[in-house]
Design a binder for these strands. Structure first.
Length: 829
DNA sequence: ATAGGGTTAG
């Protein structure tokens, strides 16, 4: 009894040494204050020496007794000291812990949430075989429950019984149930309830409350309502039990039922506590039931409670995501009425409730006085963001510039805002980013240069990255390097994005040496160069017929330890093929596997195209078989390339066969397939079949031919001498809004001239001239067009029209001397 | 607050 008394008195003391010392000196005789003090001092002051080596401790050990140990345990501020002392005491000869010393250390460890030592303690208490009263067991179990060690509590509860150390009473059971109450262990609860009734225990309120809690946690409302009714029948019902049930229902989405329960409480005059209101409103909001949340919120106020800031915060938060500024402001006004102190979180939510500039300004006028400088800057930055997102980048820029002018005051003309705050780095970030996105790089750089040299405006990584990336996209590489240098000097570490922005720019410029230098630097930073930039380098080099250099670049990148992917290699393959280095391409293609990549369908397509173009269709066919063997599925592109190859190789039959096979294989031919065939058939002098194929594409397959397809057909028909049909398709093409180019017109004109149909040829020249499609001097078709014009000038039916076109400048590229030299000066006035 | 690049038709 005395020990219990002592413990509870000790617990009231804050863990403060002076207070403790004063207390120690007032202790009654039965505790040796001097001893307790000495032990406390030794364990506090020598944290580094092992207690076992301490001669002073060895001297004190024989005087240990449970009461002393308990006193000393509670005297430590740190759980760790207490634990060390407890362990030391455990090992002293002649001393044994009692349930009370175990409980003392258990409560200390539990409060400090020291799970592992607590677990060890449950083993130790069993091993020590110390007997305990049901009350002591209950206390111990509650320590475990408080630390969340539900299973351990349960096991221990059973073991102390089977070992005969304790026979639990209702209180001990209740403690166990309380420990279990945070869990969803319905089975465990049921088992314990059964045990209790077997033993003839009367279930009281403290039994049934945790039981209800567990049923609610597990969503077992059938059982929960049974228990609830049982509690009600026994007359135990109170607001707390209602709130457990209501909150459980809420957590399981049954908001309406929870709300009904509150109404029942009101009807029965069971007071709903403030905490219940708060917890339920939060729960309703979490369940996205703003309607009920607001209803309950009103009830709460009707009951005379002043809602706390957390409720205003969460409700304003909902209105803020819905962008309902008015409703958010309504709550805010109410909050002020209740004199609830606002905070930054709420101000932030109000700011993000604003949809546009107007709303931000309104908000500013309404809550200006409640905002501190930090909040003002936030509002200001929101305004800048809104402006930037609405495309008013100039306005955002202007505002920021205005703010940068010190002594910003009420005279700011034309603006209702009065900013007395300073912009911060975020302000600049928003505007610089906006300027970069709007392509106003010079302004962005200028603003960056003018950033005030203050800590709050120190450019951050995002600013540097955005600026460097913007400059790089505009090929302003030198400035990017300069800014990168400044960035590093300022102590910021470039991110992979920073380096890759510059790397991409170097690749776009085809600066192979520069790119490789940077890759070396990046490797030091542990940054991978983005392969898409390597691919870009390859593409650009290939565009300039430098496919060999591209391959070398890829090799060098590999040398640095970064292996490009198949896409980069495919680009290189294509580049080699474009400069007719098919054998080199083949070599690379075979080498790719050795580099750890597997050629994919696109790579095969590229290779096959290359072979077909140099009439090595048989090899292309071999590749087709190879890819199928490797489990790759040929695409429409694959077949299209092959069809083209066969057509150009004189085997139109094979191409046609392929077309029907495509259907079988489920690779639906597309416009390109048909166009290729139309072209091939016309070249083979088979216009009827070409028209049939065309018809199948349009009428049967419902495909929509584009510019190139139409031009192939028109050109092909001209070639076959089907000029009139060609002209019909030209009409159709134009009626569908497509614009034929000089190539097609020239074909038609030549064809009409060949048929000696000068009037029709003239029509075509007119159309071509009217559309400004007359082939320029550098155009392959220029000579043909010019010859046609000359021929038409020689014909009395057509010459005057041609003369007019020349006079109007619609045939600009035919120079006078050209015509005069033909001796036709009489035709031109 | 950050990926997405390679292949086919006159």
């Amino acid at each position: 009894m005395k020990a219990l008394c002592l413990r509870s008195r000790l617990k009231q003391f804050p863990r403060n040494n002076n207070v403790f010392r004063r207390y120690i000196s007032s202790l009654p005789i039965y505790t040796d204050t001097n001893l307790a003090h000495q032990l406390h001092t030794i364990f506090t002051k020598n944290p580094n020496t092992s207690p076992d080596d301490d001669p002073d401790l060895r001297a004190l050990a024989p005087f240990l007794n449970p009461k002393l140990v308990e006193t000393v345990l509670y005297s430590f501020q740190s759980w760790n000291r207490a634990h060390i002392f407890f362990t030391w005491a455990s090992n002293q000869q002649g001393y044994s812990h009692t349930a009370y010393t175990f409980n003392a250390v258990a409560s200390i460890l539990s409060r400090a949430r020291q799970i592992a030592p607590l677990r060890a303690l449950s083993v130790q208490i069993l091993r020590s075989r110390c007997p305990m009263t049901p009350g002591a067991l209950g206390f111990f179990i509650r320590c475990f429950g408080g630390a969340g060690l539900v299973d351990e509590a349960n096991v221990l509860f059973d073991q102390v019984q089977s070992e005969g150390l304790c026979f639990p009473n209702v209180y001990a059971y209740n403690c166990l149930l309380e420990a279990v109450s945070k869990s969803t262990s319905v089975d465990l609860v049921d088992a314990k309830l059964k045990e209790m009734s077997h033993r003839g225990f009367v279930l009281d309120k403290y039994t049934l409350t945790p039981v209800l809690q567990v049923y609610c946690n597990a969503g077992r409302f059938d059982k929960a309502f049974d228990v609830f009714n049982m509690i009600s029948d026994r007359g135990f019902l109170d607001g707390y039990l209602f709130s457990i049930l209501a909150l459980g229902l809420t957590k399981w989405g049954q908001v309406d039922k929870a709300f009904e329960l509150i109404e029942v409480m009101e009807a029965r005059n069971v007071g709903v506590t403030e905490k219940t209101f708060i917890v339920l409103i939060h729960g309703f909001v979490k369940q996205a039931r703003l309607d009920r949340a607001l209803q309950l919120f009103d009830k709460m106020k009707d009951s005379g409670f002043v809602p706390d800031i957390s409720l205003y915060d969460v409700l304003i938060g909902v209105f803020s995501t819905a962008k309902e500024l008015d409703k958010a402001l309504g709550l805010y006004a109410e909050m002020k009425e209740f004199k609830v102190q606002t905070d930054t979180g709420i101000i932030t939510k109000l700011i993000s409730s604003c949809r546009d500039e107007g709303e931000l300004k309104r908000l500013y006028t309404e809550i200006r006085r409640d905002m501190n400088l930090e909040a003002l800057t936030m509002l200001y930055n929101s305004l800048l963001t809104v402006l930037v997102n609405n495309g008013s980048i100039n306005k955002a820029y202007g505002l920021l510039r205005m703010l940068m002018k010190k002594g910003c005051n009420n005279d700011l003309q034309g603006d209702e805002f009065c900013w007395e705050n300073d912009p911060n780095a975020d302000s600049f970030c928003v505007v610089i980013d906006g300027l970069v996105k709007a392509g106003k790089l010079d302004m962005a750089v200028g603003l960056f240069r003018d950033m005030p040299k203050k800590i709050c405006c120190k450019p951050n990584l995002l600013i540097y990255n955005n600026l460097i990336s913007g400059l790089c996209s505009s090929d302003r590489l030198e400035e990017s390097f300069e800014i990168l240098r400044e960035m590093e000097e300022s102590g910021l570490v470039p991110s992979p994005f920073t380096h890759n922005s510059i790397f991409g720019c170097l690749c776009k410029r085809m600066d192979v040496a520069g790119a490789l230098d940077l890759v070396k630097k990046m490797r030091v930073h542990g940054h991978d160069p983005w392969i898409k930039h390597c691919t870009l380098m390859v593409k650009e080099l290939c565009k300039h017929r430098k496919a060999v250099e591209a391959c070398k670049f890829l090799d060098d990148v590999v040398e640095e330890g970064f292996v490009p992917d198949m896409i980069a290699y495919s680009a290189a393959l294509d580049g080699l093929i474009r400069i007719k280095e098919v054998d080199l391409a083949m070599e690379l293609f075979r080498d790719i596997v050795a580099r750890g990549n597997y050629p994919d369908v696109v790579a095969y397509n590229t290779m096959m195209k290359g072979l077909c173009q140099v009439r090595r269709v048989a090899e292309a066919e071999e590749l087709l078989n190879e890819m199928i063997t490797k489990g790759l599925v040929p695409s429409v592109v694959t077949y299209n390339s092959l069809i083209d190859g066969w057509c150009k190789n004189g085997s139109v039959e094979a191409a046609m066969r392929c077309l029907s096979e495509m259907f079988d294989k489920g690779r639906e031919p597309n416009v390109i397939t048909y166009t290729t065939l139309v072209n091939g058939l016309c070249n083979a002098g088979r216009p009827e079949e070409a028209l049939a194929v065309w018809n199948e594409m349009v009428a049967v397959k419902g495909l929509v031919p584009g510019n190139i397809a139409f031009m192939a057909l028109v050109h092909g028909l001209c070639k076959c001498g089907r000029t009139n049909e060609a002209a019909v398709h030209l009409r159709e093409m134009k009626s569908r809004g497509m614009k034929p180019d000089g190539y097609v017109y020239t074909a038609l004109i030549s064809a009409f001239l060949a048929e000696l149909n000068h009037p029709s040829a003239l029509e075509m020249v007119k159309e071509m001239a009217d559309e400004g499609s007359f082939p320029g001097k550098l155009d392959k078709n220029h000579a043909i067009a010019r010859d046609a014009v000359i021929q038409l000038l020689r014909d009395s039916r057509t010459w005057s029209s041609i003369r007019d076109l020349i006079a109007e400048g619609k045939i600009p590229s035919i120079s006078m001397p050209d015509i005069e030299s033909e001796g036709l000066d009489g035709c031109i006035t």
